[in-house]
Design a protein around this nucleic acid. Structure first.
Length: 265
DNA sequence: ATACCATGAACAG
DNA sequence: TGTTCCTGGTATC
């Protein structure tokens, strides 16, 4: 389920198991083989997330780049077991503490540092990180006639939001996804920024996307919130708050969800 | 057993 | 705008 929160959690969790150590790097599936050989046994200085991207800073000076896309997944095997790779493992990272397998990523490469710079240069601010330039996001939105639902999914406008957080942030802010960006006022932009910041950070903590307030759910405290009741509008048939039927739109070939009552055009 | 769809994005034309 | 790459859960038969 890779939106930005997943990537930040991975950076944090994997960092504890890999950084500052010699890491064995291989590619059981083969497609990362020659790159893996160049850093096999090097020290991993840090894993840096930005939006949905991960950058592996290796002691050789080269930088690994991973983007999970829709299907990419990591599997952690703690301890010193070295299980046979299951499925198409593109990259295997081995430290004294764990074996971590990467399968199905959209991107997995080893590059010169300039490549990282180019990628960061085309990404918008990451609401999970501190000291981000939210004004850059505001400027792009207010200069555009594209719909805000379209803009929020554009990683060069803001980095890390995917289809679930788009639907949920616009719902909480009461903004219709087709409102042109240039029609939003400052209060709405500020509300959007603080909403996505809080939502994605909570996602990192929870390890999943839960956007509904517990108090709005009719379940006992402490009980796990099921998938399907964790969102207000995303993939729901009826609005969590007012019961209106949720509308679906196709925006750039992705399904967008909104409540026509809570998010008037 | 099989089909289809999805929390993503690059690329062709 | 449509195609392509990748995997796995859910729906459908």
């Amino acid at each position: 389920m890779p939106e930005g929160h997943t990537i930040h959690k991975i950076a944090k969790d994997h960092g504890k198991l890999l950084t500052g150590m010699e890491v064995g790097v291989s590619s059981p599936q083969g497609r990362f083989e020659s790159d893996a050989a160049r850093i096999d046994g090097a020290i991993l200085d840090k894993i840096e997330p930005h939006g949905k991207h991960l950058f592996y800073h290796w002691s050789t000076g080269e930088i690994g780049h991973v983007h999970l896309g829709l299907f990419g997944k990591y599997k952690i095997h703690r301890g010193d077991e070295r299980p046979e790779p299951r499925g198409a493992v593109r990259m295997r990272l081995v430290s004294d503490l764990a074996t971590i397998d990467l399968a199905g990523p959209t991107a997995c490469s080893l590059d010169e540092p300039s490549v990282r710079k180019e990628i960061l240069a085309r990404l918008g601010p990451d609401p999970i990180k501190p000291r981000q330039k939210k004004q850059k996001m505001f400027d792009k939105i207010t200069k555009s006639k594209r719909g805000i639902g379209d803009l929020l999914m554009d990683q060069s406008v803001v980095a890390g939001i995917g289809n679930v957080y788009r639907a949920e942030a616009l719902f909480v802010c009461g903004i219709h996804p087709l409102r042109p960006g240039r029609d939003l006022d400052v209060a709405e932009l500020e509300a959007l920024w603080s909403t996505i910041t809080a939502m994605l950070r909570k996602g990192v903590k929870d390890g999943r996307i839960i956007t509904v307030e517990r108090s709005e759910l009719d379940i006992p405290p402490g009980k796990r919130i099921k998938r399907g009741e964790a969102t207000y509008a995303y993939k729901r048939d009826h609005c969590m708050r007012c019961g209106t039927e949720i509308e679906r739109l196709d925006i750039q070939n992705r399904t967008s969800y909104h409540c026509p009552t809570c998010q008037p055009h």
